[in-house]
Amino acid sequence: MRILRAADRKASPWKNGGGVTWEVAASPAGAPLDDFEWRVSLAEVASPGPFSRFPGIDRILTVIRGQGLSLAVEGLGATALGASSAPYAFPGDIAATAALSDGPIRDLNVMTRRGRWAAQVRRMSGPVAPKLTAETVILVALTPLDVGDAHLSPEDAILFEGAVPPPIGEGAFVLVELHRA
């Protein structure tokens, strides 16, 4: 179990230069944007525009803060996403454009290399003792949250690799389960 504090993350520009992202975790650690197996990050979407394209990557986007956005994905139409919407999966190698509902949003973005990794992303609330089968699990706190003896602030995360997570206290979080394909 490794705690990943939001305060320790460094901002970096989006691949297309249109915004800012903060990497929560990636495999392999420190991999560049064109060579990761999986990547979990937070992003600030402050203006409408296109999403970066990632050939061979599947994406799952979860709005965690703000009034929401409409995400138009080529061939799939537009989908309204807000801070209580289910995570939304789409191919990262086709055109996608966001229009903001009312001001900036923050999202959790999970990207996996197609054919090698797959992800399941769920919004959850505690208290709970989740039963997990994935070899890699990332929990991202949306509210203050106690996980075993660890106290998380919003956007702090915990990476579990092959470990059984301790009981999770009262609060909201996003759970990312990563499986080899």
Score class of each variant (00 low, 15 high):
residue 19 G to A: 09
residue 74 E to C: 07
residue 50 P to K: 06
residue 42 L to G: 09
residue 88 Y to C: 12
residue 136 T to Q: 10
residue 9 R to F: 11
residue 166 P to S: 12
residue 90 F to Y: 13
residue 32 P to I: 05
residue 71 L to M: 12
residue 41 S to A: 15
residue 72 A to H: 08
residue 98 A to Y: 05
residue 31 A to D: 03
residue 128 V to G: 00
residue 42 L to W: 02
residue 38 W to F: 15
residue 81 L to E: 02
residue 23 E to K: 03
residue 80 A to Q: 11
residue 44 E to T: 14
residue 46 A to M: 01
residue 27 S to C: 13
residue 65 R to M: 00
residue 23 E to T: 15
residue 130 P to H: 06
residue 111 M to F: 03
residue 104 P to I: 07
residue 136 T to A: 14
residue 75 G to D: 07
residue 66 G to L: 10
residue 9 R to T: 12
residue 88 Y to L: 12
residue 75 G to V: 04
residue 42 L to D: 05
residue 155 E to F: 13
residue 160 F to I: 03
residue 129 A to F: 06
residue 92 G to Y: 07
residue 85 S to Q: 05
residue 151 H to N: 07
residue 140 V to N: 01
residue 67 Q to K: 12
residue 60 I to M: 06
residue 45 V to A: 07
residue 67 Q to D: 12
residue 72 A to L: 07
residue 173 F to S: 08
residue 32 P to Y: 06
residue 21 T to Q: 02
residue 157 A to E: 07
residue 8 D to K: 04
residue 76 L to D: 11
residue 7 A to E: 15
residue 36 F to R: 09
residue 41 S to G: 10
residue 154 P to Y: 13
residue 157 A to F: 11
residue 13 P to Y: 10
residue 167 P to F: 14
residue 64 I to H: 06
residue 77 G to S: 12
residue 87 P to H: 04
residue 79 T to Y: 00
residue 13 P to F: 07
residue 65 R to F: 00
residue 3 I to F: 02
residue 18 G to L: 13
residue 87 P to M: 03
residue 13 P to M: 08
residue 67 Q to A: 15
residue 5 R to M: 05
residue 36 F to H: 09
residue 119 A to K: 05
residue 163 A to K: 11
residue 63 V to A: 03
residue 104 P to C: 12
residue 112 T to N: 01
residue 132 L to I: 15
residue 156 D to I: 09
residue 118 A to P: 00
residue 73 V to I: 11
residue 162 G to I: 05
residue 81 L to W: 04
residue 89 A to I: 08
residue 42 L to V: 06
residue 149 D to A: 13
residue 173 F to M: 09
residue 169 G to W: 11
residue 121 V to S: 08
residue 11 A to E: 15
residue 52 S to I: 10
residue 79 T to D: 01
residue 101 S to H: 13
residue 92 G to E: 10
residue 60 I to Y: 02
residue 90 F to D: 02
residue 34 D to V: 05
residue 127 P to Y: 06
residue 78 A to E: 12
residue 87 P to T: 05
residue 128 V to P: 00
residue 163 A to N: 04
residue 72 A to T: 15
residue 74 E to A: 15
residue 9 R to D: 14
residue 107 D to A: 07
residue 175 L to T: 10
residue 108 L to M: 08
residue 169 G to S: 11
residue 173 F to K: 03
residue 55 P to M: 10
residue 68 G to A: 08
residue 17 G to F: 08
residue 125 S to C: 05
residue 140 V to C: 03
residue 145 L to E: 01
residue 158 I to P: 04
residue 130 P to R: 09
residue 86 A to I: 08
